[in-house]
Structures are given as C-alpha cells and as structure tokens.
Design a protein around this nucleic acid. Structure first.
Lengths: 220, 220
DNA sequence: ACAGATAACTTATCAACGTTAAGTTAACGG
DNA sequence: CCGTTAACTTAACGTTGATAAGTTATCTGT
C-alpha cells in the first residue's frame, strides 16, 4: 500500500538503533526545509521521505520546531569553526574584526535559509527566532546556543582589541552590537530581497566592512 | 446562537454600504495583527470581532494576504508623510540624510509589527515580504508600493547631496543601500530580539547614524 | 524454546486552519 | 409587489500539526 518514496531507508529499526532513524529524519528535514522552506515542509512530507508514518517522527522529536532547532545548531557549528580559524591565523586585531565580519557575511550568503531561520525568523515560531541570541549560560545543553556563541566571540575580540590599545568609539559591547547590526543589515537585505537591483555585491560588502570599522575604531 | 463579540458592528449592511464593512474588517484585522501577530490572527477571529461569518471576509478581500497588504500601505503612508516634512523643513543635506535615517528608525521602533511584516517578512507569505521593495513603476495602483517609496526618497536626497557638492565614498545608489542596510540592521535587531540585553538604545541609534554618515560621506 | 517486557512502529482520529460552494435573506428599482 | 442582486450564512473540503491507542518485532531472562 504505502508507496516507497525517494529516500526510504528500509524497514523497522532494530532495538537500540533508534538514533539512526533520528538522523535520517534530520537529514530529510534538512533537505526539505532547504528545498521548500519551513512552512511548506510538512511533517508528512518528512515522514514520507524517510519512509515512516508521520507520527513516528514524534518518537524522536517533541515537535516540528525541535527538528529545526537541531538543524540550525548543526549549521551554525560551521560558522563557529571558521571563526575559530580566524582567531588562530589572524593576529592583527583590526584585521581579525574585519575577517570576522566577512566570515559572518559569507556564511549568511552561503546558508541563506538557515540564516533566515535563526536571525530573521521567517515563517518560524517565535522560539526558533529567539535562538539566534539564546545565551549559552541559559542552559548549555539546550539546542540553539550556537547562534549566540558567534556574537560572544565578536565581543571577545573587541575587548581584546581594546586591551591591546585600539581606541574604540563606544564601549566594547556597544561596538559589537553596532558591528553585528551592520553586518546583519547587509546580510538580511541581500537574503530577503534577492530580486532587488542591488549594486555590486562585493562593493557593498567591502563598503559595509569599511563603514563599520571606521565607525567603531578611532582612526590611527 | 452567535455570541456577539467585543466589537460587533450591528447587522447587515444596506445596499451600497459594503465599503464600510470593508473598513471594519481592516480595523479588526489591524488590531488583531498587532495584538497577536500574523499567524495567530485567523480569518475566523477577524470575522468574530467584526461580527460576521468567516466567509464574509472573502467578499471584500481575495485572501488573508490582501488584508495585510492594505494595512501595510496605510501605515507606511505615515512614514512617507514624516519624510516629506523633513524634506520641507531641513535644508542642510547632511542633516537631512541623518534625519531621514532617524525618522526611519523611530518609525520602525514605533510600528514594530508593520516593520516586521514589510521588511522582515516574519510569518508572512513571500508576496507580502516582497512589497517592501516593490517598485512604484511596477504598478502604482497595486497595494504595497509605499514601502518602496521610502527607499526612493533616500536615493533622491543622496543624489541631491552629491549634486550640491558633498563628496560620497561610493555611487549614490550604493550609498543609499549602505545607509538603509545600517538603519535596517539596527531596527530589525531591536525589533526581532527585544529581550536581548542591548546597550543604551539612544547610544545605538546615534552610533549607527554617525557610523553611516561617516561611512558614506567623505569628511569635510 | 518460550514468555514477558518494551522499543519501534502504524492506524485512526482530533481540532484548527484558509478557502470555496451553494444556498438564503434583505434592500432597492421598476 | 416582483425580480434582481448585494450582502450575507451554513456546510463543507482538503491540509495542517499533533495525540491516543493499538500492533509488531526484537531483545532478555529463564
């Protein structure tokens, strides 16, 4: 009776193998979320792609939202990684700030759907929208902290820069907020309105980075 | 049988008075959208508040989305008005740009829900998300152009500023985009994440305005 | 080998949603 | 007072996220 869908993964799992089903569900959900967006990705579509019934998903996730949270944490892990590499490789602090911004931007443009889901809350329940700034101190085991960690790293490098003698125009946290807001403004504009006749993308990126650095760090 | 809801507005309209019903629906929809957001505002809730059945709404609007579009146009009319006043009263062009930015920001913070709906597309169908940049040239009679007009005015003042001798760091349209992106980044951050421990709001606003002007206009 | 126990499912169902079809009522023009 | 039709209503459809309750298959202990 049940038509086998494209990525059905065989029959019932053996005892103790439930976690593999969980990963299959996450994989299918990720594909569908990226293909069709959050709203259009229904529980039933995910279940079909995995090859199980819809209620089976509720054995592994509390609800649709928790699937999204798990996926977002995963994707944002990649951004945290690349930020870690910049911290390791770029010693000049002004340049490090700039590369943070650029990495953030490139990440957003490379993963527009995840970016939307975390930082723009497009068609996502409020609790998902909030995970972009959920603090790790809240409860480090809860999903969704990875979005916030990115911001904390930015504050970190700014504090470090100030300690190293760079003159900031505002307190470090204010500077971090302004920096993030500038980057976020650019990212969200390009992501939300791709059909707008924006001027050259690299010109905008470099312009924004210059603008932010100039606005935050007192000129040498 | 039908329980009269809070704002029920009497019985059936007389012939030719349908447009007043239309306005009642818009008013109820506006209240509910602002109280509960787009998703939570159901057709049935709107109909209840007006005091009619749910399908009656479809006599006046094609669908839920068109109600939102009509409301957004209305609200953005206010911003266009205040921008018009700035154009009339502020002759210094650098100051005019700054006040444009501030007006935009204050407007966004005063009407966070409309802002979200137009510029952030939070829980709104894509066609609603797009009206923030729908060009008036597309079809001036269609609802939703008011969001775009705001941006065009910004381009206008920048072109004017350049003609008047102010030195821009980039082409005028690029400058307008960067300016808007900065303002939008700040507005959307404050609106989407109100529970984040932002530093002082006025400090952020002035900081962003300084940052943008400094980034766009070459120093005198 | 066989009897629970229980992980891993399914089928049936729910209430709520946006929307449509089709019928009803009431106001006006002649 | 009759017919047209604007202004509605009731009933229903197909989908959605989610739950309840039952079923099947695998493992453990004896």
């Amino acid at each position: 009776m049940s038509a086998f869908s494209t990525a059905a993964t065989g029959g019932r799992k053996k005892r103790g193998e439930g976690h593999t089903r969980r990963e299959e569900i996450l994989q299918a959900a990720k594909e569908l979320f990226l293909e069709q967006g959050y709203d259009s990705t229904t529980i039933r579509k995910i279940a079909d792609r995995v090859g199980v019934s819809a209620p089976a998903l509720y054995l592994y996730f509390q609800d649709k939202e928790q699937m999204m949270l798990a996926l977002c944490d995963q994707t944002f892990g990649y951004l945290i990684e690349s930020i870690g590499e910049i911290e390791k490789n770029v010693s000049d602090l002004r340049e490090r700030i700039r590369q943070f911004g650029e990495a953030y931007l490139r990440f957003g443009l490379k993963h527009p759907d995840e970016y939307r889901l975390i930082f723009l809350g497009s068609n996502v329940p409020e609790s998902v929208r909030k995970i972009g700034h959920r603090m790790p101190t809240d409860d480090p085991t809860r999903p969704g902290v990875n979005g916030a960690i990115v911001f904390q790293r930015l504050v970190g490098v700014l504090v470090e820069a100030e300690a190293a003698g760079l003159k900031l125009n505002y307190p470090a946290d204010t500077c971090a907020e302004l920096c993030w807001m500038g980057m976020h403004g650019l990212a969200s504009a390009l992501i939300l309105k791709p059909e707008f006749p924006w001027s050259n993308r690299d010109l905008l990126i470099n312009g924004m980075l210059d603008m932010v650095l100039k606005g935050i760090i007192r000129d040498a």
